[in-house]
């Protein structure tokens, strides 16, 4: 098969590795990390890519989870679309959504760290957890608020919008064992620094490539992947299977 793999740069090393070892011909396309902050925008970006991708590809494989609902509503283009049954990328890093669920239930106050996110953070970022905005971006936002709403309101807004951090108590670094030792150590050190600075517990978890590998290898077990045919779209299932297919209205 010839596959187009659409993914987020947070999964770059994992997807590239699996693509290199796949029995199929795989073209990898990366989107910027952090787009899940605005799910409708991410959905629009992905839909544009899906609509523009057809033969000679046999299928599009989407290395994304639901990502805040961003992928819900995506329509397959002119070729099948394959999506892992995952809420977000952490499932893909851990290799098992039941494992993610257990982590989630056992440690709801976990901030996740992964190699690719850490090494692709913007300049001036002290905080490198998955989904975190950089310090530089936070400073820019603060400045924008001062200009728009004045010092007093800006301070209040930063306090309100940053209050979530007080609810977290654990940093979990998922080690995929892909990056060279030095790079992996540097990433882990940054995650540990974050944890120390915030007084969080630090845990290092071994990642598993199995879900990404299965996606890229074309081993689409229905228990772990949903295959959408042209004319179908992705919907949330609100159950353990996470996502389901439904007919997409024409147009």
């Amino acid at each position: 098969m010839r596959l187009a793999a659409l993914t987020c740069e947070v999964l770059a090393r994992s997807v590239y590795l699996c693509a290199a070892r796949s029995p199929h011909v795989v073209d990898v396309r990366l989107n910027r990390r952090g787009l899940h902050d605005d799910p409708p925008n991410l959905r629009a970006i992905l839909q544009t890519e899906l609509d523009a991708t057809g033969p000679p590809y046999d299928a599009v494989v989407l290395a994304y989870g639901l990502c805040g609902g961003a992928t819900a509503g995506l329509r397959a283009g002119s070729i099948p679309l394959v999506v892992p049954r995952a809420h977000d990328c952490i499932t893909l890093f851990l290799g098992d959504r039941a494992r993610y669920q257990a982590e989630f239930v056992g440690n709801p106050g976990t901030y996740w760290y992964v190699q690719d996110y850490l090494e692709r953070t913007d300049e001036g970022s002290a905080f490198g957890g998955v989904g975190a905005v950089s310090d530089a971006a936070a400073r820019a936002t603060h400045q924008e608020y001062i200009e728009k709403y004045g010092e007093d309101n800006a301070a209040y807004l930063m306090e309100m919008l940053g209050a979530w951090r007080s609810h977290y108590n654990r940093a979990a670094f998922v080690e995929m064992s892909i990056a060279p030792e030095q790079a992996a150590e540097a990433a882990e050190r940054r995650a540990r620094d974050d944890a120390n600075r915030r007084g969080w517990r630090f845990d290092r978890l071994a990642g598993e490539l199995v879900l990404i590998k299965g996606l890229i290898d074309g081993a689409w077990d229905p228990a772990d992947y949903l295959v959408l045919q042209p004319g179908e779209r992705l919907a949330m299932s609100y159950g353990e299977d996470v996502i389901r297919a439904e007919g997409a209205p024409a147009g």
Partner: peptide, 10 residues
């Protein structure tokens, strides 16, 4: 339960 994100709730 399990969700610590409270900006919306607030």
């Amino acid at each position: 339960k399990g969700d610590l994100h409270d900006i919306g709730k607030n």
